[in-house]
């Protein structure tokens, strides 16, 4: 049970990091980690289908879309 609390803490840390980083590429990586931990938490809550959707959409697709968006604008935030 303690491992679930640990995962929630890690998810909070990654989410705060995603909003603090000035380098937008690092922020995208942190957001990717947030969805990864979310998939593990869905797995703990006995919902493997939701975990599968979260894994494929949150990790692969959203990263690609964000990267294309950064490519069209600027990488570093002022």
């Amino acid at each position: 049970m303690i491992i679930v609390y640990l995962l929630v803490l890690l998810m909070l840390a990654a989410a705060i990091a995603a909003s603090v980083f000035k380098d937008l590429l690092s922020a995208v990586i942190a957001a990717c980690l947030v969805s990864l931990i979310a998939a593990i938490l869905f797995y703990f809550l006995q919902a493997p289908d939701v975990a599968m959707a979260e894994a494929s959409i949150g990790a692969a697709l959203v990263t690609a879309v964000f990267i294309v968006a950064i490519k069209r604008t600027k990488r570093h935030e002022e």
């Binding site: 590429l25 797995y43 493997p48 599968m52 894994a55 494929s56 990267i67």
Partner: peptide, 27 residues
């Protein structure tokens, strides 16, 4: 439940490759 890790193992390298292509200034 093994299906979830199957999907992970098959799809997760896409994210790494996209980030690497962006770092290489190519996409």
């Amino acid at each position: 439940y093994l299906d979830v890790s199957l999907v992970y193992a098959a799809l997760m390298f896409v994210g790494s490759v996209v980030i690497a292509r962006f770092l290489e200034k190519g996409i």
